[in-house]
Design a protein around this nucleic acid. Structure first.
Lengths: 177, 177
DNA sequence: GACGGCATGTAAGTCGTTACATGATTTG
DNA sequence: CAAATCATGTAACGACTTACATGCCGTC
């Protein structure tokens, strides 16, 4: 039987393939990297670590720091194979839930200045995202590797949204629709 | 008491503000427009129509076509106010789940040619999205209004992703990381 | 008469977030 | 010594998808 992946499975296997870590470490790694396009919570991570260990895709070892209990997990050969199978599978799910876009879509119910305000708010949101991504860019030494490629993608997306906002703000500001 | 919005609430109120419709009509409208950034299923729409009607934000009227029963809903003043309150609220949730990005992030476990294939697959996915958006652009007459602005945003995003893919494909193809 | 589109609806199940609980350690 | 951080975990809840069920209508 193939191991049934859920949302957090590839994240755990992927980060453990970079190196052994605790659940807490995985959560921190996610929050500094993939969460921009794939989030994960403790409520997913800890139960899934159990499940993966039971199936032999990872192995946990007690590694307390001082008096704090701590379990560090290591990916197994079976786990690496499962990760590769997932990487090679053709599915590329992509889902977006963007309330700013939705509001803009229905903003005809508002006064024009308010619709303009919505665009400005959206621009600010993505400018903020750009600041965060650029901060990450600065404190990661390597300017190569796939994670860096992905970071460049994030920058490209947010930059294009900011540009589109600016353009549309000018249009709406001039009374054009 | 404020009406508690869920994911599908603003979609229903927004489309009914454009004009009276049945649940089926709303689903079709969503699938041709907002679903690129905000999807909705029948499993959400029909129960929420009931709930909205019970609270007086919309009103349903039987409007059969031939022997097919059909209920057309109309937004009320209370419904319009709720829509405006939502439009004016500062929250702008934005969530993305992009499996292509996640795979690329962990693609170091693959051979370089396979990682390149992942990038190409992602590019094709967004080229396909562009085709769909451009088809919508062509068969909608008005080239103004907020929905048109949002459509332009969708085009800008997918175009920037396609460009980023092309650029990174060239980089990886040359043996760069 | 089969198939596709119109039209409404529900049940089951999955998925994910949030809040909470516990307790140790480090830092200001 | 208080607050932040390390570290693990669970329970409750809400959200959403999928599959299914029903039945009418038009057309090939």
């Amino acid at each position: 039987m193939e191991y049934a992946f859920n949302g957090v499975t590839p994240v755990i296997l992927g980060f453990l393939d970079f190196g052994s870590r605790s659940g807490y470490d995985i959560k921190n790694a996610v929050d500094k990297s993939t969460r921009f396009f794939w989030a994960a919570s403790y409520g997913q991570i800890y139960p899934e670590l159990r499940r993966l260990e039971k199936s032999g895709l990872i192995e946990g070892e007690s590694a307390p720091r001082g008096g704090r209990r701590r379990t560090v997990y290591t990916i197994t050969d079976a786990g690496r194979e499962a990760l590769l199978r997932w990487l090679r599978a053709p599915e590329l799910t992509r889902e977006v839930r963007d309330e700013g876009m939705l509001k803009l879509f229905f903003a005809g119910a508002l006064e024009p200045e308010e619709a303009l305000g919505l665009l400005q708010a959206k621009r600010r949101q993505h400018e903020e995202a750009l600041r965060r991504l650029r901060a990450i860019e600065l404190d990661t030494p390597e300017s190569e590797g796939l994670p860096y490629v992905v970071l460049q993608g994030g920058l490209a997306i947010h930059e294009s949204i900011v540009e589109w906002c600016s353009k549309m703000e000018r249009r709406l500001g001039k009374g054009g629709s």
